[in-house]
């Protein structure tokens, strides 16, 4: 992405996602070959197609490379503290249920320091779309091990290769009660865009894991080539299977990747559950909270 229109065969063409970006903040901070920008591109396209009122759509990030996404999108955007995007988003959503609230952050932010919030937001079925860009590493701090780093992967804090068992994020989200769970890679831009669109329109806790290359740190340290080499790996080793049991979605170092939409179900959201409970117990004296326009 650049602040200037691209020149294609001598003609200036504005990138269709530009209106969704804070152009006065470009160029962005991400490294060449990083996949985060690709996910943002998909997200911007999903925003064009989802039919939401973008003035009523907010994005919340934590800290890290992916945590910077909020700063580039022309939405009400909140770049919060490390790991706490989900509870901030919870307050924002409950504070104004008319908002569509998206949490957009990285694997370290969402599943290590923020892991407790992740499992509880899924358990409560808080009405949030949670997008996790999983590049298996802490990029901004220089390539440390995260809860998703595959066994054997070298990281600065695992110089002899990671020996900790990683999270299987779709399984974690599923087990905790997420109503929508998908995994794609930055190779699968069409499917990812569609998943983001579905997630934006889903009521309840929707979770999308996006595998994304970090050529500067993860790939270089593990001698995996550049960004393009990782995307080639995603292309060659990914298999779409929507019917797989989420417990079988563990990832191994440079191993096969199962992608797809694994969970799509309905469950009472936190807000609906609260309103239903209070209405049944308190009766007419209770005026349901935040249902003037309904949840989006």
């Amino acid at each position: 992405m650049s602040a200037n229109p691209d020149v294609v065969m001598g003609v200036e063409v504005e990138n269709p996602v530009m209106p969704y970006l804070r152009q006065d903040r470009l160029p962005h901070i991400w490294c060449p070959g990083c996949g985060i920008g690709t996910t943002v591109n998909c997200f911007a396209r999903a925003l064009t197609e989802c039919g939401l009122d973008l003035d009523q759509t907010a994005i919340v990030s934590g800290i890290g490379c992916t945590g910077r996404v909020a700063g580039y999108l022309d939405l009400d955007s909140f770049h919060t503290t490390h790991g706490r995007a989900i509870p901030f988003a919870t307050g924002l959503k409950v504070g104004n249920p008319d908002l569509k609230v998206v949490v957009y952050s990285g694997d370290g932010d969402l599943t290590a320091i923020g892991g407790n919030h992740f499992v509880h937001a899924a358990r409560r079925n808080m009405d949030l779309l949670c997008i996790c860009v999983n590049n298996f590493t802490y990029g901004m701090t220089g390539g440390q091990c995260t809860p998703t780093s595959p066994v054997g992967a070298k990281q600065t804090t695992m110089p002899y290769g990671n020996f900790e068992h990683p999270f299987n994020l779709p399984h974690l989200a599923d087990a905790c009660g997420a109503v929508y769970v998908a995994r794609w890679t930055v190779y699968h831009v069409k499917q990812l865009t569609r998943a983001m669109k579905e997630g934006l329109n889903k009521k309840g806790f929707a979770f999308i894991e996006v595998l994304s290359p970090c050529p500067t740190l993860y790939s270089r340290r593990n001698r995996l080539g550049d960004g393009v080499d990782q995307v080639k790996y995603y292309k060659e080793r990914s298999k779409i299977n929507n019917d797989v049991d989420t417990k079988d979605l563990s990832l191994e170092f440079q191993g096969d990747i199962t992608v797809g939409k694994f969970v799509d179900r309905e469950r009472e959201t936190w807000l609906d559950a609260m309103n239903n409970r209070f209405t049944s117990v308190i009766g007419d004296k209770y005026e349901p909270y935040g249902v003037t326009n309904g949840e989006k």
Binding site: F88, T90, G95, H117, G290
Partner: peptide, 24 residues
Amino acid sequence: GGVFIQLEDELASSIAIQGAAWAG
């Protein structure tokens, strides 16, 4: 006409209120 939410810890509580403040 308001809400209380018991969260998973004080980290969550102290930032959730700020989300709600930015919701007005």
